[in-house]
């Protein structure tokens, strides 16, 4: 234990407006939800933020509901909540699959969807699934609220479009209005408590409406736009030949920019991306 509890303040505002007012002070407040990232940094003595705001008690940030043509998920929704929700199973099945593949029970009881997005790790488990569901994120501050497209949310390694005074309050994904096929696979050395080394998430709607996202192979989670385009046109043309699959896979590998780190190698990540992408595409052929 290398963190010093005396070196940090932590307050728990009673409601969202009070939390946003604190953030509006621009005093470098860090938001602490379920603690599964912030407290790990704290333990290692790496938490630099002196002032923290707990939002765990803000029940207004919980809840999963259909609102209009969207499924709306509160920022404090935990992995466990996602797994247990029949609405998520119906409208964001990839997200449910991603939540099931994350950590283990105790972490899933505390880790939140908002935290997983805000922490902005390229190895985060939910974001690849959120990307293929056309997720939007609602950012709120004392001065207003805005919806941003999640596909443009991450701007670089651990950087996002969020302003310091903003808080993620909820996310939404369009309701599934047509049959959807989806694919989610995370690779992480062991089967539980694993940090992703490569993750691929994909969905196909209306036959050729394609989303493909990669995790852990670039500074951020990314949509594989070229692959999506090529795959969509191949599907639209009604022919996804073995040759086409190989060609698209090669394009996908070129879109990934994996690196060496203590968890794996760029070479491994590249080859697994290739294999998983092929597996993913073949599953859409079948």
């Amino acid at each position: 234990m290398r963190g010093d509890a005396h070196a940090h303040t932590l307050v728990a505002p009673a409601d969202l407006d009070s939390a946003l007012a604190l953030l509006a002070d621009n005093k470098g407040h860090r938001v602490l939800a379920g603690g599964t990232d912030v407290m790990v940094a704290f333990e290692r003595g790496l938490l630099r933020d002196a002032r923290l705001i707990s939002i765990w008690q803000l029940d207004e940030l919980r809840g999963i509901a259909t609102v209009g043509r969207h499924l709306t998920i509160g920022a404090l929704t935990t992995y466990t909540d996602l797994i247990e929700s029949s609405l998520v199973a119906e409208h964001a099945p990839t997200l449910a699959a991603a939540a099931r593949d994350t950590a283990a029970v105790a972490i899933r009881n505390r880790g939140t969807i908002g935290g997983n997005i805000a922490n902005a790790s390229p190895a985060a488990d939910l974001p690849p699934a959120l990307l293929v569901h056309d997720c939007e994120v609602e950012l709120r501050s004392a001065s207003g609220a805005r919806w941003v497209d999640y596909a443009g949310f991450h701007t670089g390694y651990k950087t996002t479009v969020m302003r310091p005074d903003e808080l993620i309050v909820r996310v939404r994904v369009p309701l599934v209005d047509a049959p959807m096929r989806h694919f989610y696979r995370k690779v992480g050395t062991r089967r539980a408590q694993a940090i992703s080394k490569v993750c691929i998430s994909a969905s196909v709607r209306r036959g050729h409406d394609v989303r493909i996202a990669f995790g852990s192979v670039a500074p951020t989670v990314v949509r594989a736009r070229i692959v999506e385009r090529e795959l969509a046109s191949a599907l639209a043309a009604g022919l996804l030949s073995t040759e086409a699959v190989s060609r698209i896979v090669a394009l996908g590998v070129a879109e990934a920019r994996p690196i060496d780190d203590i968890r794996s190698t760029a070479e491994y990540r590249g080859r697994v991306t290739r294999n998983l992408l092929r597996e993913c595409l073949m599953s859409f052929v079948a």
């Binding site: 283990a104 050395t189 062991r190 089967r191 539980a192 408590q193 940090i195 203590i262």
Partner: peptide, 16 residues
């Protein structure tokens, strides 16, 4: 040792 954390030094869990 660069991976001196439980997170990064992988031992089998109950599902492994």
């Amino acid at each position: 040792m660069a991976n001196g954390q439980f997170t990064n030094y992988i031992v089998p869990t109950s599902v492994d």
